[in-house]
Design a protein around this nucleic acid. Sequence first.
DNA 1: CACCTTTGTAAAGCGTGCTTTACGTTGAGG
DNA 2: CCTCAACGTAAAGCACGCTTTACAAAGGTG
Lengths: 65, 65
Amino acid sequence: MNNSIQQLRQQHGWSQADLARHLGVSRQTVNALERGRYDPSLPLAFSIARLFGMAIEDVFQPVRD
Amino acid sequence: MNNSIQQLRQQHGWSQADLARHLGVSRQTVNALERGRYDPSLPLAFSIARLFGMAIEDVFQPVRD
DNA sequence: CACCTTTGTAAAGCGTGCTTTACGTTGAGG
DNA sequence: CCTCAACGTAAAGCACGCTTTACAAAGGTG
């Protein structure tokens, strides 16, 4: 599962800590998501998409088989 | 997080076991999702939405605070 | 009645999602 | 040179997502 979190965050001029605060998660979580260490939970994916005003499908791209 | 899995499954005339086979998960997982015992992982949410030809946002509805 | 399908549930087990605390590196600015 | 912000990473710990095996209850069909 790839995602566009880093680009979206940088477009807003936010640090990882800024984004973490907006999402209500830890900075380490934002870092792990950006670096693809794991996928967010579905509720967190919703929070991220809503924060950036996008559909989940536009923020996250399932890796094709 | 509410979801429309049961209605979508029934519209297709599928049993929980049928849906589980289409998704590649266990029947117990489908049952747990329909009954709201927990939320699916993001990849599984993608599989469900794609199987029914819908957007994730149309299958899953985050509970509002 | 006997059987079969469907659904609900439980327990044990494994990997993942997220936390807190903590430390190392890099780059910009005094 | 020193400092500070930002990022990357690690370890321990807890809760969740999903598995397998297993059993019980309800409804239809022979």
